[in-house]
């Protein structure tokens, strides 16, 4: 096992968590991510492979779903992001490649996105200061990409809160925006 020590997207060894009013904003660094895009003509076969792996059908357009171990969200036509705990799935992309074989193109995205988990009541009141998505009326299980503070971010609404994915290099800027908006909206 190599001895390079990972750093979180916010540049620390431990993930950061802030509670502002009723909302908690936590950095979630230990997430393995990989994108899967069906090859041309292999769309059905790719979906079959994903279903076998996830234990659930690959999410529909703009949807998010969790299987027993892995979860997935739609990112584009015939394209998904697969998500798993990093500790148990450090080689997520390789596993996907071996499962999907030549039905899909797989790309490791683990380091590409910083994830922030938002929990607490009235998250839409915070999110309405950040992005144009109508989160108050969006049912859980939806995943959309939109602009937050000039950055293309994935916003996932699930039963217990919101997952936010920002380009990793801009994690500090997004985190700052989250805290500022939370102060304005919630305190």
């Amino acid at each position: 096992m190599h001895d390079l020590t990972p750093l979180t997207a916010l540049g620390a060894s431990k993930p950061r968590s802030d509670t502002i009013g009723p909302v908690t904003i936590s950095e979630a660094p230990d997430v393995a991510l990989a994108s899967v895009t069906a090859r041309l003509g292999q769309e059905a076969a790719c979906q079959d492979a994903l279903r076998a792996l996830l234990g659930i059908p690959a999410p529909d357009i703009a949807a998010y779903a969790s299987g027993p171990q892995l979860s997935a969200f739609w990112i584009g036509p015939d394209s998904w992001m697969i998500m798993a705990p990093y500790d148990t799935h450090p080689g997520l992309a390789n596993r996907l490649t071996s499962v999907c074989k030549d039905t899909a193109s797989v790309t490791d995205q683990t380091g590409a996105w910083a994830r922030f988990d938002l929990t607490g009541p009235d998250l839409p009141r915070l999110m309405e200061r950040l992005c144009n998505l109508d989160l108050a009326h969006m049912p859980p299980g939806r995943a959309r990409r939109s602009v937050i503070d000039h950055l293309g971010c994935y916003v996932i609404k699930h039963q217990d809160g919101i997952l936010l994915f920002a380009p990793r290099s801009a994690a500090q800027s997004l985190h700052h925006a989250l805290l500022t908006a939370a102060q304005a909206a919630l305190r």
Binding site: G76, P77, R144, R145, S146, G152
Partner: peptide
Amino acid sequence: ELWFHEQGDRS
């Protein structure tokens, strides 16, 4: 006209 969903699904 052509529009690119750059900050969305990239269609």
